[in-house]
Design a binder for these strands. Structure first.
Length: 863
RNA sequence: GCCGAGGUGGCGGAAUCGGCAGACGCGACGGACUUAAAAUCCGUUGGACUUCGGUCCUUGCGGGUUCAAAUCCCGCCCUCGGCACCA
C-alpha cells in the first residue's frame, strides 16, 4: 500500500482483480434468495454523461449492498441500440448507423467499466442485434395471430421538402429541424398494439404498486385518463344518419345548442357536400389538418370553427342544432364529435360568444340565478337542473345517473367509458430499427413472416439517404420477396420498423437468459429472477416506457410465457444533474472558460459584455454547462466521482454540480486512506474487538459510535436509499476515529476497538467507493475483497448509552440540560429537572402549572 | 388552468413518529506546521443585542391547533416537474 492515495493505480488494480476473479458473474440458484436490481439501459449516444454516472452509481451501491447482505444479485447492463440519432450521425458523418452504434457501445462500455460498476457483463445485450430483435418479431407475429396488433391509417408529421416522416422531436415550433419548412400531416397505413384492451387493468394495478413514487403512479393514471360518461346519438335533421357523441356531462344535454366535430371526422365533408358552405369547409379542414399538432395545441391557440351547412336534432329538446367543425375537437378522443353546451363548458361558451350561438342555462347553482345575457364564463360547477323537462329540480350529480338510465331505456344512447390512452402506434418510417415482420401479397393480403424465416434481418448494406428518408423501400434485395403463403414472387415486405420502445419493453426479461436461442427467454430463469426488485432511472420515462413495459408484461403473461403481471416491484426515479449556466446577451450560453473574470464581474470573452451567471439548469451540451466524467475520473478517480454523486443530494432530488464539492469528496477519501496508511503497521497483530470485555472511556465511546454508525448507514440504505446521510454518518465515524486515535490506541482493548471502527468504516464505505475499500481492506491484512464479506451488523448492546441527556424547557423554551443515568424513571427525571440549579432559579417560587416528561428526552415545565 | 413535489444559514443539504432547528460537507475566518506556499491538522462560523452570565429573533408569508410546530390544519405567495382545448 502506498503512502499517498493514488486513485488511478488503485482503481486499475482492483478492476483487474474483479475481472480476473469473475466476481460479478451470477447464476440462477434456487437455494439462494435473489435480488434483481436494474437500471434503465442507455442509448449508446457516444459518451457516458453525468446523468448516467448518477443513475448507475445509485444502482451499483444498492447492488453491492445487497450482495454483502447475502443476496444473489442480478445486475445487468446493455444497450438500447436502435434509434434516430444513429441515422442522423450517419447522414452527418457518412458512417453507417451500425458502425456508429457499435463504436459508441465500445466506448461507453469501457467508461462504465472504468467507473467500477459490478455488472455481470456476460449478460450484456444490444437491441440492434438480430439475436435480440428476432424474438420481438416472433412475439409480433404471435400477437398478430391473436388480433392483438392491427393496421389502420394514421397521421404522421411530414416534411414535403425533405420527403420524409419526422418524429415529434424533429419538429421544432412547427418547422422541420433540418430544412425549416413548415411540417404537415400525412396519412399512412400503420401498425398498432391494442394497449387499450389493457387500459382498465393497467389503471387498476396502479394502486397495487406500493414501491413506486406516488408522482409516477399519478402520471400513469392521468395518462390512461379514464372517464365515465355516456354516448348519445344525435339524429341528423334530414334523418339520414346520426352523430354519436361522448360526454361526461349528460346532465347538461338539455342545454346542448350546437355540435362540434373534429376537422378529420369522416362525416364532416359528407355533411358539407352540396351546401353553399362546402368550399369554405373544405378550405378550413385542409388548413387545420396541415397544421402540426404542437401548433394546434399550443398556448396561443384560438378557438375557431365553421358551420358545415347541416343540422342535427337534440333528442331531448327537439332543438335544431347547427353542426360546426372546430379546431379544438379532437378525432382521437371519444367519437370525434362534441355536443356543445355553452352555458356549462368554458370552451363551448367562448365558441358560442364568438359565433353568436344560443346559450341555455340548465344547471342552476344554489342561491344564484344565471342569466345567459350577463354570464362572463360558463358555470361548470354543481347545481340543480332547470329547463330539463322531467329532470327539473334534480341535483345534477343525481341527474347524471337518471339521464344515463333514460338514454338506455329509450335506446338513444348508453353509458360509456372513454380512455385518453390510445392504441400504441409502433410503425416508424425509419431505417435503424427492428423490421416489422410482415409481407404484403396481392393475392393473400397481409401475411406475417413464418417463424422459420425469422429474424427478418435489417440489411446492413443499405445506403443512407440525404434528408433522412428510409432506404428500405427502395432496397429491392430487402423489400422484394415472395409470399410465404402462395409463393407469389411479386410480394413486398413491410419496410417500416418498430418503435424503439418495443425493445425496451422486455429487455429486463431477456437479461435473465440473454443467450437463450429457443425463445424470448428461458422460463425457468425468468421465473427465478423476475420481477425486478428495484428499478432505477430517469423521471423522463415515468409514463411511456414504464407503461409500455407494464403492458408488454401483461401480453407475455397472456401467452403463458411469464407468471408475473407487473415487471417492477420498486421504482426509484432519480433527479436531474444540474449546473449553473453562464449567458452572454449577445453570444448566448458560454462555457465557463469563455467568461473572463474581471473587476466588474465576469465578462464575455468574445464581446467583452457583462455575462449573466447563476441560473442552475439541467446539464446539457446546448446550455454549455456539462462536466465530463472522463476528465473528473482522470483527476480524482471513479470513487470520488461516485462519492460526490451520492453525497450531494438524496437520489430522487436534483443534484447541483459543485466543483468544490468534488474536492471535498476527494479530501474525505484521502482522510480515510491516511487513517489506514498511518496505522496499519500498529494494527497488524491486533484483532477486531469481539465484545464481552467491558470497555471504558474513549474506547467505549468509539465502540458505541461504530455501532451507531452501522445502524444508521444500514437503515439509510435499506429503508430510504438516502446515501447522503449514510455517507455523512461514516464521515462522523471517521472524525471520531481521528479525534480519539491516540487515547484509544494506547491499550490493547482500545486498539481492538480502533481496528473494529476502522474496518466498519471501510466496509460501510465499500458500496460507494469499492476500489478504495478493497485496497484498504487488503492493507488491513485481509485477503479477498470487501464484496465477499458480510455487511457489518450492529450490536444493540454497544449502542445503549448509560447516561442520557435530558433537555429542560420552561414554557417550551430550552433553559437547561443535564445528564442522568439511563435507567431512571420519569418521576426521577422530573425531580432532577425541577431541582436543576438554573431551572430552580428561573422558576423562583412561581407556581408550576404542569410538567410534561417525554421519555428519556425532554421535560417541559409550564408556569 | 389542473395535478404533483418543494421553499430551512453565504451554498448543497440534515432533523426517520409533534420533542435541543442547522448533522455532514462546501465556502469563509483564525491558529499550528513551513523560509514560504500547497497539502495537512486544530478551532470559529444563522442573525441582532450583550454587563460575556446570557437575552431576543429565526425553517417562504399570514392565521390556527398544542405544554411543545420545519413537521399537523386553514388561507396566501413563489420555484420546479408533469399534463394541458380530453368533451
Amino acid at each position: 500500500m502506498q503512502k499517498e492515495y493514488d486513485p488511478e493505480s488503485v482503481e486499475s488494480k482492483w478492476q483487474g482483480i474483479w475481472q480476473q476473479r469473475q466476481l460479478f458473474r451470477v447464476e440462477a440458484d434456487a437455494e439462494k434468495k435473489k435480488y434483481y436490481l436494474l437500471e434503465m439501459f442507455p442509448y449508446p449516444s457516444g459518451n457516458i454523461h453525468m446523468g448516467h454516472v448518477r443513475n448507475y452509481t445509485i444502482g451499483d451501491v444498492v447492488a453491492r449492498y445487497k450482495r454483502m447482505q447475502g443476496y444473489n444479485v442480478l445486475h445487468p447492463m446493455g444497450w438500447d441500440a436502435f434509434g434516430m440519432p444513429a441515422e442522423n450521425a450517419a447522414i452527418a458523418h457518412k458512417v453507417h448507423p451500425a458502425t456508429w452504434t457499435y463504436q459508441n457501445i465500445d466506448t461507453m462500455r469501457s467508461q462504465l467499466k472504468r467507473l467500477g460498476f459490478c455488472y455481470d457483463w456476460d449478460r450484456e445485450l444490444a437491441t440492434c442485434n438480430p439475436e435480440y430483435y428476432r424474438w420481438e418479431q416472433w412475439l409480433f407475429v404471435k400477437m398478430f395471430e391473436r388480433g392483438m396488433v392491427y393496421r389502420k391509417k394514421a397521421f404522421v408529421n411530414w416534411c414535403e421538402n425533405c420527403q420524409t416522416v419526422l418524429a415529434n422531436e424533429q419538429v421544432e415550433a412547427g418547422l422541420c429541424w433540418r430544412c425549416g419548412q413548415e411540417v404537415g400531416q400525412k396519412e399512412l397505413d400503420q401498425w398498432f398494439f391494442r394497449i387499450t384492451d389493457y387500459a382498465d387493468d393497467l389503471l387498476e394495478h396502479c394502486d397495487r404498486l406500493p414501491g413506486w413514487p406516488d408522482k409516477v403512479v399519478t402520471m400513469q393514471k392521468n395518462w390512461i385518463g379514464k372517464s365515465l360518461g355516456a354516448e348519445i346519438r344525435f339524429p341528423l335533421e334530414n334523418g339520414n344518419s346520426e352523430i354519436p357523441v361522448f360526454t361526461t356531462r349528460q346532465d347538461t344535454v338539455f342545454g346542448a345548442t350546437f355540435m362540434c366535430m373534429a376537422p378529420e371526422h369522416p362525416m364532416v365533408m359528407k355533411l358539407a357536400a352540396g351546401t353553399e358552405q362546402e368550399e369554405k369547409v373544405r378550405a378550413f379542414v385542409e388548413r387545420i389538418r396541415f397544421q402540426d399538432k404542437a401548433k394546434r395545441t399550443s398556448d396561443d391557440y384560438e378557438k375557431e370553427g365553421i358551420f358545415v351547412g347541416a343540422y342535427c336534432i337534440n333528442p331531448f329538446t327537439e332543438r335544431r342544432m347547427p353542426i360546426f367543425t372546430a379546431n379544438f375537437a379532437l378525432m382521437e378522443y371519444g367519437t370525434g364529435a362534441v355536443m356543445a353546451v355553452p352555458a356549462h363548458d368554458q370552451r363551448d361558451f367562448e365558441f358560442a360568444c364568438k359565433y353568436d350561438l344560443d346559450i341555455i342555462v340548465v344547471i342552476q347553482p344554489k342561491g344564484e340565478t344565471l342569466d345567459p345575457q350577463t354570464m362572463a364564463e360558463a358555470h361548470v360547477e354543481e347545481g340543480v337542473l332547470v329547463r330539463s323537462g322531467p329532470f327539473d329540480g334534480l341535483e345534477n350529480v343525481k341527474a347524471l345517473e337518471a339521464i344515463a338510465d333514460y338514454l338506455e331505456h329509450k335506446n338513444i344512447g348508453k353509458r360509456a367509458v372513454n380512455f385518453r390512452l390510445r392504441d400504441w402506434g409502433i410503425s416508424r418510417q425509419r431505417y435503424w430499427g427492428a423490421p416489422i415482420p410482415v409481407i404484403y401479397c396481392d393475392k393473400c393480403g397481409v401475411v406475417p413472416v413464418p417463424e422459420k424465416d425469422l429474424p427478418v434481418i435489417l440489411p446492413e448494406d443499405a445506403k443512407m439517404l440525404e434528408g433522412g428518408k428510409s432506404p428500405l423501400p427502395a432496397l429491392d434485395s430487402f423489400a422484394k420477396t415472395s409470399c410465404p403463403k402462395c409463393g407469389n414472387p411479386e410480394a413486398r415486405r413491410e419496410t417500416d420498423t418498430m418503435d424503439t420502445f418495443v425493445e425496451s419493453s422486455w429487455y429486463f426479461e431477456r437479461y435473465c437468459s440473454p443467450h437463450y436461442s429457443q425463445g424470448m427467454f428461458d422460463r425457468k430463469d425468468v421465473g427465478y429472477w423476475m420481477p425486478v426488485d428495484q428499478y432505477i432511472g430517469g423521471i423522463e420515462h415515468a409514463i411511456l416506457h414504464l407503461l409500455y413495459a407494464r403492458y408488454f408484461t401483461r401480453v407475455l403473461k397472456d401467452f403463458g410465457l411469464v407468471d408475473h403481471k407487473e415487471p417492477f416491484l420498486r421504482l426509484l426515479t432519480q433527479g436531474m444533474v444540474c449546473k449553473e449556466t453562464i449567458k452572454c446577451p449577445e453570444h448566448g450560453f458560454l462555457y465557463p472558460e469563455e467568461a473572463v473574470a474581471g473587476e466588474a464581474g465576469r465578462t464575455c470573452k468574445h464581446c467583452g459584455g457583462k455575462v449573466e451567471v447563476g441560473r442552475i439548469e439541467k446539464m446539457s451540451k446546448s446550455r454549455r454547462n456539462v462536466v465530463d466524467p472522463n476528465t473528473l475520473i482522470e483527476k480524482y478517480g471513479a470513487d470520488t466521482l461516485r462519492l460526490f454523486c451520492l453525497f450531494a443530494a438524496p437520489p430522487e432530488r436534483g443534484l447541483d454540480w459543485s466543483d468544490q464539492g468534488v474536492e471535498g469528496a476527494y479530501r474525505f477519501l484521502n482522510r480515510v486512506w491516511r487513517l489506514v496508511a498511518d496505522h496499519k503497521d500498529r494494527l497488524r497483530d491486533v484483532k477486531p474487538f469481539e465484545g464481552g470485555k467491558p470497555l471504558a472511556g474513549d474506547a467505549r465511546e468509539l465502540h458505541r459510535k461504530t455501532h451507531q454508525t452501522i445502524k444508521r448507514v444500514t437503515n439509510d440504505i435499506e429503508t430510504r436509499f438516502h446515501f447522503n446521510t449514510a455517507i455523512s454518518a461514516v464521515m462522523e465515524l471517521v472524525n471520531s476515529i481521528y479525534a480519539l486515535k491516540e487515547n484509544v490506541l494506547s491499550d490493547p482493548a482500545g486498539a481492538s476497538v480502533f481496528r473494529s471502527a476502522l474496518e466498519a468504516a471501510v466496509a460501510l464505505l465499500s458500496p460507494v467507493a469499492p476500489h478504495l475499500a478493497d485496497e484498504l481492506w487488503e492493507a488491513l491484512g485481509h485477503t479477498g475483497g470487501v464484496l465477499e464479506v458480510s455487511w457489518p451488523s450492529c450490536r444493540e448492546d454497544a449502542i445503549a448509552e448509560e447516561q442520557i441527556l435530558i433537555v429542560v424547557q420552561v414554557n417550551g423554551k430550552v433553559r437547561s440540560r443535564f445528564h442522568i443515568r439511563a435507567d431512571v424513571g420519569d418521576d426521577a427525571i422530573k425531580e432532577a429537572a425541577l431541582s436543576d440549579e438554573r431551572i430552580a432559579a428561573r422558576l423562583a417560587g412561581r407556581p408550576v402549572k404542569k410538567v410534561i416528561v417525554v421519555k428519556k428526552k425532554l421535560v417541559n415545565i409550564v408556569v
